[in-house]
Design a protein around this nucleic acid. Structure first.
Length: 269
DNA sequence: ATGGTGGTCCTACCA
């Protein structure tokens, strides 16, 4: 069977329901992981997303900020959420997705803190918190159970690790999302768990791959000052199962547009 | 060196 997994920073799920429907129509995800849903669980649009075919849903949100959700056509066998660094932020939900053979795939959906503008952890507590968050993710990932078996980690990780993940490696190396402190931590998380970057597996360097373009550009496509902040990683067992990966660039134009484009991976399991 | 846009919810805060 094929399992299609999509991750998208939706930037308010209630505000963008029509665009969400178009994304689903184009990408046909079995599992759709959202970040920045910006809604408490009681007000999550369960009816609207069920009508798109997602009978099984896990929402983990808060008022106005953050929030993640996992929407699935297949049953969610075991689900969970977790808070990081003793904060009430809603940045992590996970679920086991049922397959046809009794070998579920566990999907972790994460939203890493953006970290503010100043890349100095002494001056900027948001950046210090982001670095601590990434350190905590490495500790978590080092636990061998995390990336064992069939595991997928997706989300807005707010780090563009490779030189060709940004429009200008030199200039962005002093800009939050591409600083050496963040890049070394992200690669540390991957190494700690054995995670493999499924998108780069299919589109290796030096191809440029971006998933985010600022709202502030007059013409995002012409300027193309993008960054790859949204990721899909797989455990070693799933590496030979990665069939395809792509970014739905068109969605960056679908009004009202999110500043992030959806990312998709197709697994043959 | 600066300001540029967008979502949430009422005044700034966050991205």
């Amino acid at each position: 069977m094929a399992l299609t997994i999509v991750t998208w920073n939706v930037n308010s799920v209630r505000f963008r329901l029509d665009v969400l429907a178009r994304v689903v129509e184009r990408l046909r995800p079995d599992v759709l992981c959202l970040q920045e849903t910006k809604v408490v669980d009681d007000l999550f649009p369960h009816l609207a997303t069920a009508a798109l075919g997602f009978e099984h849903r896990l929402a983990h949100g808060m008022k106005g900020y953050n929030g993640v959700a996992i929407l699935s056509r297949r049953p969610l066998l075991r689900t969970g959420t977790r808070h990081w660094l003793d904060r009430a932020d809603c940045r992590h939900a996970y679920a086991e997705i049922a397959d046809d053979d009794g070998c579920p795939v566990i999907v972790h959906n994460l939203y890493v803190p953006a970290g503010g503008d100043d890349p100095d952890p002494q001056r900027n507590p948001k950046f210090a918190h982001k670095l601590r968050f990434l350190d905590a993710m490495a500790d978590w990932s080092r636990d061998g159970a995390v990336a064992s078996g069939r595991a997928v980690l997706v989300g807005d990780l707010n780090v563009a690790p490779l030189p060709t993940d940004v429009w200008d490696h030199q200039r962005l190396s002093r800009v939050v999302t591409h600083t050496p402190a963040e890049v070394s931590r992200l690669t540390g998380i991957m190494a700690a768990g054995g995670w493999v970057d499924a998108v780069r597996r299919m589109h290796p360097e030096p191809a440029k791959v971006f998933t985010w373009w600022s709202y502030r550009a007059a013409d995002w496509r012409a300027a193309d000052k993008g960054r790859r902040l949204d990721h899909i990683w797989v455990s070693p067992d799933l590496v030979p199962r990665v069939r395809a990966a792509d970014v739905l660039l068109d969605a960056r134009d679908w009004a009202p547009a999110s500043d992030h484009a959806p990312v998709r991976v197709v697994l043959g399991i």
